[in-house]
Design a protein around this nucleic acid. Structure first.
Lengths: 226, 226
DNA sequence: TTTAAATTAATAGTATTACTATCATATTTG
DNA sequence: CAAATATGATAGTAATACTATTAATTTAAA
């Protein structure tokens, strides 16, 4: 995916930031080390002061890019889903068989990220861990409705709708395409979490992946003769 | 469920609290109004100081029951899952047909709570909303492994295992019973959230419930001939 | 190349949070 | 009734999540 993406810029709704972090060296350092620090100490303990110390910059300079650490999380998650969406569109493009297409899409959203080579300052492996551990916190807030109106979750919702459309391509009669799509995406993150922290309530491990589980689940859900 | 439960006490791992809130009037007020206040302002803005003001008591008195607001959340969530587990065991007891049994269990974990009548000081409708909006925050932390070792999530995991066992009763060959069970429980909370805040990525609404979706999904997953 | 504009750094300050500690006052119980 | 226990009031601390101001540095334009 590297060479194909190297000229592209993933774009994030611009209301999320005060100043585009892609537009300067400091901005990129904020993103790069923000990802590493959130992964290291967790989003709850993460502060702009600590990030400032880590990158040898000042707290107040970071506040010029993001209004709050919550906005930084929204930025990172939007970036992540835009990146996933791109891969989903790219991988399924020109695949004539609807089932093969859907399976490729499910693979994209459920797989463990193992390669970090798409964008120089963003470590996608680490960012994927942040999504698994922190994504829910970006929308489980009292402000979710107003932030949704501002468009902070458009990329995520659009990506889910693409998946839903591929489900309907196979079976236009299936009544729960959206719920199934959202369950696959959210459920895969959850299974990845469980396999690290609550092994006893998942079957996923080094051999069985969330992708295996969700592909079988999906195909049975939509092709069953009832 | 009221009369049957009225003599029972739901028990929560005792390491979660410093002093059992069931043991005093103040303790019960903390739980009762803690639930209402978290629902009202959200867990992130919730503080013991605000709760103290609301119940006409002192911040420091609340700290004598719970070490932190995080522990209070663990208490509430443990209580909730114990209550759900009780209903699950009770409702499925003596049901001979494995499929009917599983469906009853799925109903218990996925339905919207509409009655508040089991325990005087706990409003189960409001508590259910808190679980939907805040449950993930109880385990998406850096301390999850140590807290898991302390037994703070035993009830939740046991309840999921019960569900998994009922799945295996129908099809002992099914390879993903635990993952399916955990997906049903977590996924149902997620669908309830989506139907309020992100309607475009769910099919659930006033007519179609998460229960409908997950029952069909489950039965197709485990009885499909592959 | 100088000058102005923009960006970043440094410092200080505020209200709130998440507690801990101490001591006084109720309330319960033996 | 005394002693034990629970609760309340007050104070204090370090950290958080910012905002504001001013100084220093970098960049871009004339």
């Amino acid at each position: 995916m590297k060479s194909l993406l190297s000229n592209l810029k993933i774009s994030v709704p611009d209301k999320i930031y005060l100043k585009d972090p892609e537009s300067s060296k400091l901005g990129k350092r904020i993103i790069e080390h923000g990802i590493l620090l959130i992964d290291e100490i967790g989003f709850d303990s993460f502060t702009f002061k600590k990030l400032g110390a880590k990158i040898g910059s000042n707290e107040s300079s970071i506040y010029r890019y993001f209004e709050s650490k919550h906005k930084l999380l929204l930025y990172l998650t939007s970036w992540y889903w835009a990146w996933i969406e791109y891969q989903m569109v790219f991988t399924t493009f020109n695949v004539p068989d609807a089932k093969e297409k859907l399976f490729k899409a499910i693979d994209v959203v459920t797989k463990t990220i193992t390669q970090d080579d798409t964008f120089s300052h963003i470590n996608e492996i680490v960012l994927n861990r942040i999504i698994i551990n922190e994504y829910s916190k970006s929308y489980l807030t009292k402000e979710v409705d107003s932030e949704n109106k501002e468009g902070y979750f458009v990329i995520y919702k659009r990506m889910i709708r693409r998946l839903s459309d591929m489900i309907l391509e196979i079976n236009p009669e299936y009544k729960f395409a959206s719920s199934l799509a959202s369950t696959i995406v959210e459920g895969a993150l959850h299974q990845h979490f469980l396999k690290v922290h609550f092994k006893s309530i998942t079957d996923c491990n080094d051999e069985i992946t969330p992708s295996d589980f969700f592909k079988e689940l999906t195909i049975n859900a939509i092709t069953k003769v009832t």
